[in-house]
Design a protein around this nucleic acid. Structure first.
Lengths: 209, 209
DNA sequence: GTCTATAGTAAGATAGAC
DNA sequence: GTCTATCTTACTATAGAC
């Protein structure tokens, strides 16, 4: 139904980066409109108007309203993950070896990203997205915890899924509250609190019956 | 936009409970269809067909697809809250005075309700609902925590909202995992784990910077 | 290959007869 | 209160210009 439309390098006889420009304009317009009105309320017409593009063009490049939203989310996620993983790497090079501390470094970077791009953080945490979006977020969150907490060797049992789900949602709620903070200092205090709660939860590891 | 449509007692010249019957049939059909397909995928046409009613009738009684979904949720919530509050009352009469223990009693009743009506619990936790539904759930969750944790005198500061939000989402994630358990015994183990995590989190109370 | 204009389709919402 | 017929909106698909 949707065409991912893989792009090859520009040929000699075509103007330079036209596709990239169009896609960027659409993504920027989508960010404006979606962050102001949410997914359901936003209309395709307003997005293409603001981008100086057209409906057909949007469908050509992204495949639809849902896929455009998802593309915006992917960009956002990528930025998050790069920040988090480089923070972990830096901590590791700084001599930190304790898994809990490494996790905290990544989580802190994640939460600071939430402050830095508040508008998108709020958009993606409101629950107003295309069908199946919540499921995708859930899946992604679980992956992230599994990676970070690899030392615990989480399995696919109910109790381990619960542990991962609760940790994920704790960070997600934290990111949400960070995004609504009024000042940078306030956001900082919220971040400290979130990390404290994460510590309390992780102390003792996953519950075993 | 929506008409709550308050109902008066049946008059002498009208057949008995016609309205109540229609509403019940629509709610039951809605439960069937929504739990199987989710909100977005479900069609109004299928619901009224299954209820032996009509589109116009649905709009007359509920105001639309979203409002019908919300009515189903209200019923579900009411059942939850009655179970939780009577469990707390019972514990209190049994001599329990520790706030944390009273909270645990309510939370346990809540989680058992999630097992008992798994289909609805899953439906309302997937994130697939009408516009604004996530916000309503959030608001309701916060109210519940505020009531149960009244002794802590939570204010409307960032840090107290964070504490309430995290506790709420912890219970919500727990309810979700309970609803997907395969056996009653399994659900019981998950419930124990959730209460353990809640204890860890509440130990020390809300974080103050 | 890229984009515009336009027609098609499906589903929620509404009006008015009974 | 109930139901049918109709309307509106917005996603989807396509033909064809450049």
């Amino acid at each position: 139904m949707a065409e991912p439309q893989p792009k090859r390098p520009p040929t000699s006889s075509w103007q330079w980066g036209r596709t990239a420009q169009t896609q960027r304009a659409l993504l920027d317009a989508a960010r404006d409109v979606f962050t102001r009105q949410g997914f359901a309320e936003a209309s395709i017409a307003e997005i293409v108007e603001r981008a100086g593009s057209s409906v057909g063009s949007l469908y050509h490049h992204f495949g639809g309203k849902s896929e455009l939203f998802l593309a915006l989310w992917q960009e956002h996620q990528q930025a998050y993950e790069e920040a988090a993983s480089s923070a972990v790497t830096a901590a590791r090079q700084g001599g930190v070896t304790d898994p809990a501390e490494l996790f905290a470094a990544g989580a802190r970077a994640f939460l600071e990203g939430s402050w830095h791009r508040r508008d998108l953080a709020m958009l993606f945490s409101t629950g107003d997205g295309p069908p199946g979006f919540e499921l995708m977020k859930r899946h992604r969150g679980h992956e992230w915890i599994s990676q970070n907490d690899a030392l615990l060797r989480l399995t696919d049992t109910s109790l381990d899924r619960l542990y991962a789900a609760i940790l994920t949602s704790l960070i997600a709620e934290g990111a949400r509250e960070v995004a609504t903070a009024r000042t940078r200092a306030q956001a900082g205090r919220v971040i400290d609190a979130v990390l404290e709660y994460a510590c309390r939860l992780m102390a003792g590891g996953p519950f075993r019956s």
